[in-house]
Computed example of a mutant assay.
Amino acid sequence: MVIKVHGIPLSTCTARVLLCLCEKGLQYKLVPVDVENSAHKKPPYLSLNPFGQIPALEDGHVKIFESRAICKYLTRKYNETRITIDLLGSSSLTDSTLVDTWMEVESHQFNPPTQACTHSLNKIIEIELRNLAKVLDVYEERLSEYKYLGGDFYSMADLHHIPYLVYFIRSSKSSFVTSRPCVNAWWNDISSRPLHRLKLWNS
């Protein structure tokens, strides 16, 4: 059975799932969702995600939504692939706990301000940029001690950041990343991984 991803590449959440599939070397089919005509808010798509958001994944009889949950599922199920990178740090309790911690940081601390800066009005952006600066200052300290957020190995904690950072780094606010040497080095590393050379954001 071919893994099906319902979404669009320009969606940051869809891109997160595609990056995970790419890291694991898994074959998949991207099923475009006509979001402009609100296809994701209507049947039959709502049978895949009752909240009407993208992406959704079908793997045989398994149907999953929420991009971060999808990534965990893919990593756990297909742990023994030809590409055996351990994105969840499951080789030790300490490693897996640190990866979990920084995945939570991405979801609750990093994602809200970057998402707001991408989609909101100028007044809101000013507030969220201040919030983001505080988060990135924490990252700078963490990355001065470790190569990656979860430790000295690339993990899901790093991968989850890539989609929004792609858009953010192309904006006029890219200095929030580039002015922090350790954060910038980390970004250059995770964004240049060979497996990420997908045509996700080339338009």
Results as ranks from 00 to 15, higher is better:
Val5Cys: 08
His6Trp: 14
Ser11Ala: 08
Ala15His: 10
Arg16Leu: 10
Arg16Asp: 10
Arg16Trp: 13
Leu21Cys: 06
Glu23Tyr: 02
Gly25Asn: 14
Gln27Ala: 13
Leu30Cys: 02
Val31Ile: 11
Asp34Trp: 04
Val35Lys: 08
Glu36Ile: 02
His40Gly: 09
Lys41Gly: 01
Lys42Gly: 07
Gly52Pro: 07
Gln53Asn: 04
Ile54Cys: 11
Pro55Glu: 11
Phe65Ile: 07
Glu66Leu: 03
Cys71Ser: 07
Thr75His: 00
Glu80Ala: 03
Arg82Ala: 14
Leu87Phe: 02
Leu88Arg: 04
Thr97Asn: 15
Thr97Gln: 15
Leu98Ile: 02
Trp102Pro: 09
Val105Gly: 09
Phe110Glu: 10
Ala116Ile: 01
Ala116His: 08
Thr118Phe: 15
Ser120Phe: 02
Asn122Gln: 15
Asn122Arg: 15
Glu126Gln: 13
Arg130Phe: 09
Arg130Gln: 14
Val135Gly: 03
Val138Ala: 11
Arg142Tyr: 05
Glu145Ile: 01
Tyr146Met: 10
Tyr146Phe: 13
Tyr146Arg: 11
Gly150Cys: 09
Asp152Cys: 02
Phe153Cys: 10
Met156Leu: 07
Ala157Pro: 09
Leu159Ala: 06
His160Thr: 04
Leu165Ile: 07
Tyr167His: 15
Tyr167Asp: 12
Ile169Met: 10
Arg170Val: 04
Ser174Asn: 12
Ser174Gln: 15
Ser174Asp: 15
Ser175Phe: 09
Arg180Ser: 04
Pro181Met: 07
Ala185Arg: 12
Ala185Leu: 10
Trp186Lys: 03
Trp187Val: 00
Ser191Trp: 04
Pro194Ser: 03
Leu195Ile: 01
Lys199Val: 00
